[in-house]
Nucleic acid binder design. Structure first.
Lengths: 300, 300
DNA sequence: ATTTGTATTTTTGCATATAAAAAACAGTTT
DNA sequence: AAACTGTTTTTTATATGCAAAAATACAAAT
C-alpha cells in the first residue's frame, strides 16, 4: 500500500551505476552503494538480489561482480519512479492549466481524488502543501477556494520579488572575488550571448536560462526566506509561459538584452548601476506578466 | 471519528445567543441562525433538537421559543470546542518549548502521535502545514529534521521583516486622511502611553500591543505575501517571549518609547523620519532577539 | 575494521473506513 | 413564490490498517 517508487528509483540508479563499470568489475560494498544511491541498505539489498536473479550481476558471498551490460529496457519507466506525491503535484499543475480555475471557484478533494485516481489523503496532503503559494485557500469543513491568478496577485508577487532581488543583487556585488558565483555568472553571460545569436529557433530556451539567472542572484542573499520565495516565482512563470505565446520571441530577446545589461552591472559592482539595471528589468517583466493576464481574462 | 468540536462550538454559540433573549421570545429561523452562528443548517438542527431535549427551548413545528435562561454549566468547556488540528498545534508549540529541540534533531511522527494521544495522520498534516515556517524540514521516507531557532535563522528573519516593514511603513504614510488605519494608529498610540504609565505592573501586556502595532503597519502594504509573513514573526515572538525573561520590563519600556517615536514619525508622513524611526526600532529589536538566543545557547 | 547475512523492530506513505458536517433536494406552509 | 423545515446525498476530518522502506542488532566472514 505504499507504492514501490523508492525501490524502482533505486533499481534504476543501480543500473546507471553498473553502466559505468566493465564486465567482471566488482561492485562497491552495500554501505557504499547505500550512500551513493541514497537509499537504505534494506532497499539496496533487495535490488541486488533481483539483479542477480536477472543475471546482471553475480553475488558470491564476499564479492559482487558485473556479468553483462545493462540494456535500456532493464530499467523501469521513469513515470514509475515518481512517488505518489510527485505524481499528484504533476497532475494538479496540468489540471490547473486545462481547467484554468478562476477566483472563487471551489475545488473539492473527493472529486480531484476520483479524477486523478488517487486517494483523498494524497490530494489533501498536496493541497495543504500547495496552499503556501496562496493560490488556494482552505474553507474549514468545506472545500478549497481558488484565489485566482489575478492582476492583484501578480502585482503583489512582483512587489516582493523586486524587493528581494534588489537586496540579493546588492549582496551579490559584495561577494569576494573568488566566489564560485562569479564563475557561474560568467558562464551564464556566455549562455545568454549564444542564445541571443540563435534566438530565431531557440527562443523557447529562455525560460530555463531566466530561472537559472535569477536563482543565482537570489542565492547570494544567503537568506532561506528569500531563496524559498523563488519556488513560487518559478511555479508562476512555468504556469504563465504555457498560455502567453504572443510575441514570445520578441519578448525573450528584449529580456536577454536586459539580462546582459544587468550582468554587466553586476560585474561592475557599482550599486547604482545594479539598482538601475535590476529595476529596469523588473518593470518590463511586470508589464509582460500583467498584460498577459489581462489578455487571458478577455479570452475566457 | 471526526470529533464533535464543531457541534460543541455551535452549541455554545447558540447558548450565547439565547442569553440575549428573554423567556418566551421566539428564536430566529434555522437559516438565519446558520449565518449568525457560522455553521451548517445540519449542525444547527442537531443543536436545536438537543436543546429541546434539555428543555431550554420548545420547538413547535413552526415556532421555536426560549423556555428558561441558560446557566453557565449548560455550555461545553472551551477546550472541547477546539478542533483536533488546533489541539495538535497547541500541543506541538508547548512541546517545542519544553523539549527545546536543537538544530539537527529528528522528530518522528509516530512518537509525537503517541505522546499527544492523536493519530499519525493528524500529526503528519500538522507538520506539513508547520513546515512553511522553515523550522522543520522533511526527510523523505525518514522523519522531520528540526532546523533550530539559531542566530542565523533570527538574522534572516529580521532581514526580511525589516525589508517588508520599511515598505509597509512607507505605504502607511501615503494612506488617505480618512483611512481607518489612522484612527487605529491613534488608538494604539494612546494604549502605548497608558501602558508606559503602568509599566511597572503591566509590562507583560507589551507583547500583545507590539503584535497589534506591527500588524497594523504591515496591513497597509496590501500585499498578501507581506501580511502572511507576519504569521511567522508572531509565532517566533510568542515562542521567544517564553524563555527570555531577563530585563523584560526594561526592554519593553525601551521598545514602547521607540514605538511612540515611530508612531509620531508616521503621523508626520515624512518618509525620512519614518525610515529613521523604523530602522532604529529594528536594530534594537534584533539585538534583543539575538542576544537572547545566545544566552539560551549557553544555558543548554 | 569492514563487510555481509539474517532477523527483528520501527516508521513512513498511502489507502481505506467512518462519524460529523455540509450541501443538495424535496416537500410544506405561509 | 419566498421562506421554512424534513430528508437524503456528498464531502470533510480523523482514525486505522497495512505494505514498503528504514533503522537496528548482532553474529559470522573476510
Amino acid at each position: 500500500m505504499k507504492g514501490e517508487a523508492v525501490y524502482k528509483r533505486t533499481y534504476n540508479r543501480l543500473i546507471d551505476y553498473l553502466n559505468e563499470l566493465k564486465i567482471g568489475d566488482p561492485l562497491d560494498s552495500e554501505n557504499v552503494l547505500k550512500s551513493k544511491l541514497n537509499a537504505s541498505r534494506t532497499t539496496i539489498r533487495k535490488v541486488l538480489r533481483d539483479l542477480e536473479l536477472k543475471k546482471l550481476i553475480s553475488i558470491a558471498s564476499t564479492k559482487k561482480i558485473l556479468c553483462r551490460r545493462p540494456k535500456a529496457k532493464d530499467s523501469f519507466p521513469r513515470a514509475e519512479t515518481l512517488s505518489n506525491a510527485a505524481r499528484i503535484e504533476k497532475k494538479f499543475l496540468e489540471w490547473m492549466l486545462r481547467a484554468d480555475p478562476k477566483s472563487g471557484d471551489i475545488i473539492n478533494e473527493l472529486e480531484l481524488a476520483r479524477q486523478f485516481g488517487v486517494s483523498t489523503s494524497g490530494i489533501r496532503e498536496f493541497l495543504n502543501r500547495f496552499s503556501r503559494f496562496k493560490l488556494i485557500e482552505r474553507r474549514p469543513n468545506s472545500g478549497w477556494c481558488f484565489q485566482g491568478f489575478t492582476e492583484d496577485f501578480a502585482l503583489e508577487l512582483f512587489e516582493v520579488r523586486e524587493l528581494f532581488e534588489m537586496r540579493s543583487a546588492a549582496a551579490f556585488a559584495t561577494l569576494p572575488d573568488d566566489a564560485v558565483a562569479w564563475k557561474e555568472l560568467k558562464a551564464l553571460e556566455a549562455d545568454h550571448k549564444i542564445l541571443l545569436r540563435n534566438i530565431k529557433k531557440d527562443f523557447h530556451d529562455f525560460s530555463d536560462i531566466d530561472e537559472r539567472f535569477h536563482q543565482l542572484i537570489n542565492n547570494a542573499s544567503m537568506n532561506r526566506f528569500i531563496v524559498d520565495f523563488y519556488d513560487l516565482i518559478s511555479l508562476i512563470f512555468h504556469y504563465h509561459y504555457q498560455w502567453n505565446k504572443v510575441d514570445e520571441r520578441k519578448r525573450n530577446r528584449a529580456a536577454i538584452l536586459e539580462h546582459l545589461e544587468y550582468i554587466e552591472a553586476l560585474f561592475s559592482r557599482d550599486p547604482m548601476r545594479i539598482e538601475f539595471a535590476c529595476r529596469k528589468h523588473f518593470i518590463s517583466a511586470r508589464n509582460t506578466l500583467v498584460s498577459s493576464i489581462k489578455e487571458q481574462l478577455t479570452v475566457s
